[in-house]
Design a protein around this nucleic acid. Sequence first.
DNA 1: ATGGTTGCTTAGCAA
Length: 255
Amino acid sequence: MLVATYNVNSIRARLNLLQEWLQRVDIDILCLQETKTLDDNFPKEELGRLGYQCTILGQKAYNGVAICSKKLPHKTINKFDDEILNEQKRLIGIAIDDIEIYSVYAPHGDARGMDKYHYKLRWYDAFIKFIGQRQGKVILAGDFNIAHKDMDVYDTVILNDVIGTMAEERAYLDRLIENGFIDTFRLIHPKEKKFSWWDYTAGAIWKDEGMRIDYIFCSKSFEGYLKDASIDIWPRKRRTPTPSDHTPVIASFVI
DNA sequence: ATGGTTGCTTAGCAA
């Protein structure tokens, strides 16, 4: 079973590239972020033609998450007890067989001290609390907007104590791991310096000046099933159609 | 070259 996460930076702008990519790989469950459109405008039919059932939680212009799966989910989780998890569309879950899968789009946070920064911390508090209550086989796939360690950024001087690398942000990923979640890419590749996002400006992708901020975490109960993990740089290196600033992250499970 | 890129929605915001 192949699980992928991809921040597409607009599903409508990225549809052609996404279709091309999906024909090259054989993804079973695709978690999308920054779909940036209301549910009515989500290209359900186009993805349906590629064999995917789409579970969508969109909003106009910003945010928006979805999960496209080959199997039909028997449950959708799109409402949460904590209001901060409901107001912006950053989290959706589905259940397939005995597995819960979440597509996650954590707030960017702007810069320390700004309103959006405090929002990020409050959102993460609510998210970790919610996730801590989940039981059994759980997968969290998405754009977490935090580079966990120094090896997850291209330059530790330029990217020291800035948004995405602050100790207080990294502590949230530590807490996820303390709760039993596994960073699948890092487990399979303990030493590899690979990124999942590169700034659009200044040709960052061609210099590999990026950060690893997209992750697939799985609960401890999955540990024996994890077979492989990778970052597919192919979509990010297209010149046409225009790519997202992120690239897909993949995890493979023997289920 | 003293900046540079996208997308959504239409000039300002968000990333």
